[in-house]
Design a protein around this nucleic acid. Structure first.
Length: 502
DNA sequence: CTAGGGTTAG
């Protein structure tokens, strides 16, 4: 089993374990279980791992510390946090590995407050974090965009003399990039003496999501000069940098370079390429590219095509993608909303109401927009239209004041962004309940200039929020950084770093 | 003789 684990991921250890159990001889010991559980976590084989857990209970091996940590890691890799926590609570003498595993689990599913709390509790109980622990907790900050916590951890690493090895540095580069501090990310990156493919890729990704496409390409060039082989993920970074920057010929060059180096394009690569063609409005070529793909396009690719049709108010390439999309994902609200807006943009009102009716009949509810802001080391979440925050009353007052000033300034609300069947006044009000505005209002309430207001959002920003945020940055003389699902927007003095291209 | 936790993804 150990031999198979040292090679590419495979089912073999699980198959061997089954045979061992069937033969009833020899009896598996804690080493055996650790190996087979490792295999289950790599494969995310939930059912198989559960069987092993049962076996561990029956054989009494469940009390072994290695078996426990292996089980814990297995559940967190399957994103079964409740089951993982159960195993964790049962461990009497929690090792640094156990703490790291549970913190890493929280981090992967974006539970940053929980990850931080566990990190503090770990130290309270006298267990010293090591490199692997801090990588997990720094990564939690990256996922959620918690810059202050990330900075605190960076200082902690320096102070506690935790070895700033390649992986710790890479995690810090990633954290600063994902928090919009690209210069800090670059600074740390440059101090890494021997950069591996992951470090290079992380830096390239960082430049890409921060809108520095040329820097991403430069870094890719330096990586080649350094003789580090790019991998499939590197190309996702480079291609998405080209897409965000509208760098069409560079993107095509990267694509053929990738094929030359023998990397087989995955769905993500095709997606980036379609994105690149669509952002530069080459819809015909994009559609042709999709038709030539050797694998069946996934919903994300069809959505890119349809967004492009919507932006160009064009019906020529809608039929097949629309049909495919609803066939592949009949329960995803995002698809119905996109199609409805697309038909509206082309004034196909009949088709628009068809889609809306379909959505209603199937009882599909839209995923609400959700934005978070970090205040005093805690992430505060805001959901569109929800006023459940303890300080909701104060936030509402800020919103009222801001909306008045923004409208006085001459802002025309983009009510086309609202689909509901309500009057224009209600539509305007609904816009002011968009989650990022609640988060920004909370930032205005709790912080003062020159503190940057940093917001992380689960969806993309809408046109109206983008305009309003530009205006707020000027009227209130505040720098506002919004990380949306795909990239950063840095608003300073009435303008955005994306130059209105996102 | 062999075992547990780590970073990148449209």
């Amino acid at each position: 089993m150990r031999g198979f684990l040292a090679q590419d991921p495979s089912q073999e250890p699980v198959i061997l374990f089954r045979k061992l159990v069937r033969d009833k001889f020899p009896k598996p010991n804690s080493f055996t279980l650790a190996f087979v559980l490792k295999c289950c976590s790599i494969l995310v084989a939930f059912k198989e791992g559960r069987q092993v857990h049962k076996h561990a209970i029956a054989s009494g091996l469940v009390g072994n510390t290695f078996v426990q940590t292996s089980l814990l890691n297995f559940y967190t890799k399957c994103e079964k946090m409740e089951l993982g926590r159960q195993v964790f609570e049962e461990i009497t003498d929690k090792s640094v590995a156990a703490w790291s595993a549970v913190i890493g689990g929280c981090s992967r599913v974006g539970m940053v407050n929980e990850a931080m709390e566990l990190f503090r509790e770990m130290q309270r109980t006298g267990v010293k974090p090591d490199e692997r622990t801090v990588v997990s907790v720094v990564s939690a900050c990256a996922v959620s965009g918690a810059l202050d916590l990330g900075r605190w951890l960076h200082a902690f690493i320096d102070k506690k003399a935790i070895k700033n090895d390649l992986r710790v540095s890479t995690a810090l580069v990633n954290m600063y990039s994902k928090c919009g501090c690209i210069e800090k990310a670059r600074e740390i990156f440059e101090t890494i003496p021997f950069k591996d493919a992951k470090a290079w890729t992380t830096m390239i990704m960082g430049f890409a999501i921060n809108g520095l496409s040329e820097e991403a390409l430069n870094t890719f060039g330096r990586m080649a000069e350094a003789g580090v082989e790019p991998n499939n993920v590197t190309f996702i970074g480079v291609l998405s940098a080209c897409a965000h920057g509208g760098l069409i010929s560079e993107g095509k060059k990267c694509w053929s370079g990738m094929l030359d180096s023998g990397i087989e394009p995955s769905m993500e690569h095709y997606g980036s390429m379609v994105d690149l063609l669509c952002r530069t409005n080459q819809i015909a070529e994009a559609y042709e590219f999709v038709e030539s793909m050797p694998i069946a396009p996934n919903p994300a690719i069809w959505r890119i095509i349809l967004v492009c049709c919507k932006n160009n108010k064009m019906m020529d390439y809608v039929e097949v993608p629309a049909k495919q999309l609803l066939a592949l994902e009949p329960l995803n609200a995002e698809n119905y909303i996109l199609l409805s807006r697309l038909y509206a943009s082309c004034s196909k009102w009949g088709k628009m109401s068809d889609v809306r009716r379909q959505m209603r009949d199937r009882g599909i509810k839209a995923v609400p927009g959700c934005s978070a802001i970090e205040i005093e080391g805690h992430m505060h979440e805001f959901v569109m239209g929800k006023w459940s925050h303890p300080e909701a009353k104060d936030i509402r007052e800020v919103i009222l004041e801001v909306s008045e000033r923004v409208h006085e300034f001459g802002h025309q609300p983009w009510i086309a962004a609202i689909l509901q069947n309500v009057g224009d006044a209600e539509k305007q009000e609904a816009l002011w309940e968009h989650s990022e505005r609640l988060a920004i209002a909370y930032g205005l309430l709790k912080t003062k200039a020159p503190v940057v207001i940093r917001v992380v959002k689960n969806l993309r920003v809408c046109v109206d929020c983008h305009e309003v945020t530009k205006t707020i940055s000027r009227l209130y003389d505040r720098e506002i950084v919004v990380r949306d699902r795909v990239r950063f927007h840095k608003f300073v003095d009435g303008a955005c770093s994306c130059r209105d291209f996102w």
